Lab assay of single mutants.
Amino acid sequence: MSDQEAKPSTEDLGDKKEGEYIKLKVIGQDSSEIHFKVKMTTHLKKLKESYCQRQGVPMNSLRFLFEGQRIADNHTPKELGMEEEDVIEVYQEQTGGHSTV
């Protein structure tokens, strides 16, 4: 019986991991920090939209990076291997420009 009891508790931990929340720091170019608590399985588009709304800027005017890689709207913290207190960097999107060649 103890084996049966242990097995469901392991499964519960697996389920808990799926719905687990982590805190992420979003740091802007001006070094301002906003902290977000997100589920591991939530699409990061929600975090990006919330950040842009707080900053009063359109979402397409900023780019969000985690460990140097651009974050897509459909990425989740779990897919990117994010952990508690990880940092997302935000930069002004640069458009235009010309070749110097």
Rank of each mutant, 00 (worst) to 15 (best):
residue 76 T to W: 04
residue 47 L to E: 02
residue 80 L to C: 04
residue 66 F to R: 01
residue 98 H to V: 09
residue 69 Q to L: 07
residue 77 P to D: 03
residue 66 F to L: 03
residue 57 V to C: 04
residue 15 D to T: 05
residue 67 E to K: 05
residue 91 Y to R: 06
residue 89 E to L: 13
residue 40 M to E: 12
residue 87 V to C: 09
residue 91 Y to V: 14
residue 43 H to Q: 11
residue 81 G to L: 12
residue 37 K to H: 04
residue 85 E to S: 12
residue 8 P to Q: 15
residue 95 T to Q: 00
residue 70 R to V: 12
residue 21 Y to Q: 14
residue 4 Q to S: 14
residue 82 M to P: 02
residue 51 Y to E: 03
residue 36 F to R: 03
residue 15 D to L: 10
residue 15 D to A: 12
residue 78 K to W: 09
residue 57 V to I: 14
residue 70 R to P: 12
residue 36 F to P: 03
residue 49 E to G: 06
residue 19 G to K: 13
residue 44 L to I: 04
residue 25 K to E: 04
residue 86 D to A: 11
residue 80 L to Y: 05
residue 75 H to C: 12
residue 59 M to T: 14
residue 94 Q to K: 07
residue 96 G to W: 01
residue 94 Q to W: 10
residue 27 I to Y: 04
residue 88 I to L: 07
residue 84 E to P: 14
residue 90 V to H: 04
residue 97 G to C: 03
residue 43 H to V: 12
residue 93 E to C: 10
residue 25 K to R: 13
residue 91 Y to W: 10
residue 46 K to M: 05
residue 73 D to N: 04
residue 10 T to M: 11
residue 99 S to Q: 09
residue 95 T to C: 10
residue 18 E to W: 13
residue 46 K to E: 04
residue 84 E to M: 00
residue 46 K to T: 07
residue 30 D to T: 08
residue 25 K to H: 15
residue 82 M to F: 02
residue 36 F to W: 00
residue 18 E to F: 11
residue 94 Q to F: 09
residue 97 G to N: 00
residue 92 Q to P: 10
residue 84 E to F: 13
residue 8 P to K: 05
residue 73 D to I: 01
residue 50 S to Y: 04
residue 59 M to C: 09
residue 63 R to K: 06
residue 55 Q to M: 15
residue 64 F to I: 00
residue 86 D to P: 04
residue 66 F to I: 04
residue 71 I to K: 07
residue 26 V to D: 00
residue 96 G to E: 01
residue 82 M to R: 03
residue 6 A to W: 13
residue 54 R to L: 09
residue 27 I to M: 06
residue 97 G to D: 03
residue 15 D to C: 10
residue 89 E to C: 00
residue 41 T to P: 07
residue 98 H to Q: 09
residue 100 T to Y: 08
residue 50 S to H: 08
residue 91 Y to Q: 06
residue 8 P to W: 07
residue 18 E to D: 14
residue 85 E to W: 15
residue 58 P to E: 09
residue 81 G to A: 14
residue 6 A to V: 14
residue 27 I to W: 14
residue 18 E to P: 11
residue 96 G to K: 01
residue 93 E to W: 15
residue 30 D to I: 01
residue 78 K to M: 14
residue 2 S to T: 12
residue 54 R to A: 02
residue 29 Q to D: 00
residue 7 K to W: 07
residue 33 E to Y: 10
residue 14 G to C: 11
residue 1 M to S: 08
residue 81 G to Y: 01
residue 78 K to F: 15
residue 27 I to V: 10
residue 79 E to Y: 15
residue 6 A to F: 12
residue 85 E to A: 13
residue 3 D to A: 09
residue 93 E to Y: 11
residue 1 M to K: 07
residue 56 G to W: 03
residue 68 G to M: 00
residue 64 F to R: 03
residue 101 V to S: 09
residue 9 S to N: 15
residue 15 D to K: 11
residue 84 E to T: 10
residue 96 G to S: 06
residue 32 S to Y: 05
residue 52 C to M: 02
residue 14 G to H: 15
residue 10 T to H: 11
residue 24 L to M: 06
residue 5 E to D: 13
residue 97 G to F: 06
residue 9 S to C: 12
residue 68 G to Q: 12
residue 90 V to L: 02
residue 99 S to W: 08
residue 84 E to S: 13
residue 24 L to H: 02
residue 20 E to A: 10
residue 44 L to Y: 05
residue 12 D to S: 13
residue 30 D to H: 07
residue 47 L to T: 03
residue 39 K to S: 09
residue 62 L to Q: 15
residue 86 D to M: 05
residue 33 E to P: 04
residue 10 T to E: 06
residue 98 H to P: 07
residue 33 E to W: 01
residue 33 E to N: 05
residue 80 L to V: 02
residue 67 E to S: 04
residue 86 D to H: 03
residue 84 E to N: 06
residue 18 E to S: 11
residue 91 Y to L: 08
residue 39 K to W: 09
residue 19 G to V: 13
residue 57 V to Y: 14
residue 72 A to M: 15
residue 81 G to H: 15
residue 69 Q to R: 10
residue 41 T to I: 10
residue 51 Y to L: 01
residue 63 R to P: 00
residue 43 H to F: 08
residue 6 A to D: 13
residue 50 S to C: 15
residue 95 T to P: 04
residue 59 M to E: 11
residue 11 E to H: 10
residue 41 T to N: 04
residue 52 C to W: 03
residue 67 E to F: 15
residue 23 K to E: 10
residue 12 D to Q: 08
residue 2 S to E: 15
residue 47 L to N: 02
residue 69 Q to M: 01
residue 54 R to N: 01
residue 34 I to W: 00
residue 91 Y to K: 05
residue 54 R to H: 02
residue 37 K to L: 07
residue 37 K to Y: 00
residue 70 R to W: 10
residue 63 R to E: 07
residue 1 M to Q: 07
residue 39 K to T: 07
residue 34 I to A: 04
residue 69 Q to T: 14
residue 45 K to D: 09
residue 75 H to G: 02
residue 39 K to H: 07
residue 5 E to I: 00
residue 74 N to L: 13
residue 100 T to V: 09
residue 4 Q to R: 12
residue 58 P to H: 01
residue 67 E to T: 00
residue 54 R to V: 12
residue 35 H to W: 13
residue 88 I to T: 02
residue 95 T to N: 06
residue 15 D to Q: 06
residue 63 R to C: 06
residue 44 L to R: 03
residue 32 S to C: 08
residue 68 G to A: 00
residue 12 D to A: 13
residue 99 S to F: 08
residue 76 T to R: 03
residue 9 S to Y: 10
residue 33 E to M: 05
residue 21 Y to H: 15
residue 43 H to K: 15
residue 47 L to W: 01
residue 79 E to S: 06
residue 16 K to E: 12
residue 3 D to L: 08
residue 98 H to C: 07
residue 6 A to E: 08
residue 41 T to C: 03
residue 31 S to V: 01
residue 95 T to V: 15
residue 4 Q to Y: 10
residue 94 Q to L: 14
residue 66 F to Y: 13
residue 98 H to I: 08
residue 27 I to E: 00
residue 54 R to M: 06
residue 9 S to G: 10
residue 58 P to K: 12
residue 54 R to I: 06
residue 14 G to N: 13
residue 16 K to V: 10
residue 87 V to N: 09
residue 68 G to L: 04
residue 76 T to E: 00
residue 62 L to T: 03
residue 48 K to D: 01
residue 99 S to R: 10
residue 3 D to F: 05
residue 79 E to W: 07
residue 28 G to C: 01
residue 87 V to Y: 14
residue 29 Q to V: 02
residue 54 R to E: 05
residue 65 L to N: 06
residue 8 P to M: 02
residue 36 F to A: 04
residue 65 L to Q: 01
residue 66 F to V: 02
residue 68 G to K: 01
residue 48 K to E: 01
residue 19 G to N: 12
residue 12 D to N: 13
residue 90 V to N: 02
residue 21 Y to C: 13
residue 29 Q to C: 08
residue 26 V to N: 00
residue 13 L to T: 11
residue 85 E to G: 15
residue 74 N to D: 13
residue 95 T to H: 05
residue 51 Y to D: 03
residue 6 A to Q: 11
residue 25 K to A: 06
residue 68 G to Y: 01
residue 100 T to E: 07
residue 21 Y to D: 06
residue 85 E to P: 00
residue 26 V to A: 14
residue 44 L to S: 02
residue 26 V to I: 08
residue 73 D to G: 02
residue 29 Q to K: 15
residue 26 V to M: 03
residue 34 I to C: 04
residue 81 G to E: 13
residue 48 K to G: 00
residue 33 E to G: 02
residue 16 K to C: 08
residue 90 V to D: 03
residue 40 M to T: 13
residue 25 K to V: 10
residue 3 D to I: 11
residue 89 E to V: 09
residue 70 R to Y: 06
residue 55 Q to G: 05
residue 23 K to T: 10
residue 76 T to N: 01
residue 74 N to T: 11
residue 37 K to F: 03
residue 60 N to I: 03
residue 60 N to P: 06
residue 72 A to G: 14
residue 72 A to N: 15
residue 31 S to L: 01
residue 98 H to A: 09
residue 94 Q to T: 08
residue 40 M to K: 13
residue 20 E to N: 15
residue 71 I to S: 03
residue 80 L to D: 04
residue 47 L to V: 08
residue 30 D to N: 13
residue 52 C to G: 03
residue 73 D to L: 02
residue 96 G to D: 03
residue 38 V to N: 00
residue 79 E to H: 00
residue 58 P to F: 01
residue 45 K to W: 06
residue 38 V to K: 04
residue 33 E to L: 06
residue 67 E to W: 10
residue 48 K to Q: 01
residue 77 P to K: 04
residue 14 G to W: 10
residue 9 S to V: 11
residue 26 V to F: 04
residue 52 C to V: 05
residue 24 L to I: 07
residue 94 Q to H: 08
residue 42 T to H: 05
residue 87 V to T: 15
residue 8 P to G: 08
residue 9 S to Q: 11
residue 22 I to C: 15
residue 64 F to T: 02
residue 38 V to G: 01
residue 56 G to S: 12
residue 87 V to S: 11
residue 18 E to T: 09
residue 43 H to N: 09
residue 58 P to A: 09
residue 73 D to F: 04
residue 10 T to C: 10
residue 88 I to D: 02
residue 65 L to M: 14
residue 98 H to G: 10
residue 1 M to N: 07
residue 81 G to M: 00
residue 40 M to L: 14
residue 61 S to F: 08
residue 14 G to K: 14
residue 53 Q to Y: 15
residue 85 E to V: 09
residue 20 E to K: 13
residue 45 K to A: 13
residue 97 G to K: 04
residue 23 K to Q: 13
residue 89 E to H: 04
residue 70 R to A: 09
residue 48 K to P: 01
residue 80 L to I: 01
residue 6 A to I: 12
residue 68 G to R: 04
residue 13 L to Q: 10
residue 51 Y to T: 04
residue 98 H to N: 09
residue 87 V to Q: 13
residue 70 R to F: 05
residue 79 E to R: 05
residue 48 K to Y: 01
residue 44 L to T: 01
residue 20 E to Y: 14
residue 93 E to I: 03
residue 9 S to I: 08
residue 37 K to C: 01
residue 50 S to D: 07
residue 34 I to N: 03
residue 56 G to K: 01
residue 93 E to T: 15
residue 13 L to I: 11
